[in-house]
């Protein structure tokens, strides 16, 4: 086998990185910008090393990585029946675990580490917030129990979370209509 040192390793999907910056003088959609798209492992690393680490972003900013053609919002037809595995971090974890968790999340996505259930994945979002940062993997169908649970288990394993830590999956339809304290997990792992 001859390995061409100049060839890049193709990804199963083309991915789009989005950046959101909270500017109250603009609409939500105007604050959301497509940064770039990539479809090789090498181009992913070139992008990752070029952009600011999530922990260095100011509060109110988000990064989103979604499959090409899916916009990082509930309203997108690929997302509207779906939901998210949500990781909420304590304030001090921004300095200890946030960047590592986000990188592991990105690697799970681009490496298609959920095997055949990877088709269920739409993307991932990181929210940088003063009250506590959040990372989530979004999937397309909240009723697809087997797929959602499999993704949750593999995700938790890759983050290196202990079996004592419980993470929850919430349907976007519920998140959109209920306030934080009423938020109900559809599944937990």
């Amino acid at each position: 086998v001859v390995v061409d040192p100049f060839s890049k390793h193709p990804l199963q999907n083309r991915w789009a990185l989005w950046f959101f910056k909270n500017d109250k003088s603009k609409t939500w959609q105007d604050n959301l910008r497509l940064v770039t798209k990539f479809d090789t492992v090498e181009d992913f690393w070139a992008l990752y090393s070029h952009i600011q680490l999530a922990s260095k972003l100011t509060s109110g900013c988000d990064y989103s990585l979604f499959k090409d053609g899916i916009e990082p919002m509930w309203e997108d037809s690929w997302n509207k029946r779906g939901g998210r595995w949500l990781i909420t971090l304590a304030k001090q974890q921004r300095h200890t675990e946030l960047d590592r968790f986000w990188l592991e999340t990105l690697l799970c996505l681009i490496g298609e580490m959920f095997s055949d259930y990877s088709d269920e994945v739409c993307g991932a979002v990181i929210n940088i917030r003063a009250k506590g940062d959040k990372i989530a993997i979004w999937t397309r169908e909240a009723e697809n129990r087997d797929g959602v649970i499999h993704i949750g288990r593999i995700y938790k394993e890759h983050l290196g979370l202990s079996s004592k830590v419980v993470i929850g999956y919430q349907a976007h339809a519920d998140t959109a209509t209920k306030s934080g304290s009423l938020m109900k997990n559809k599944f937990v792992v």
Partner: peptide, 18 residues
């Protein structure tokens, strides 16, 4: 069709290759 899957180790190695 076949799915292109990469494990964490491989992806991290690609980061460090020239």
């Amino acid at each position: 069709g076949t799915r292109i899957i990469y494990d964490r180790k491989f992806l991290m190695e690609c980061r460090n290759s020239p």
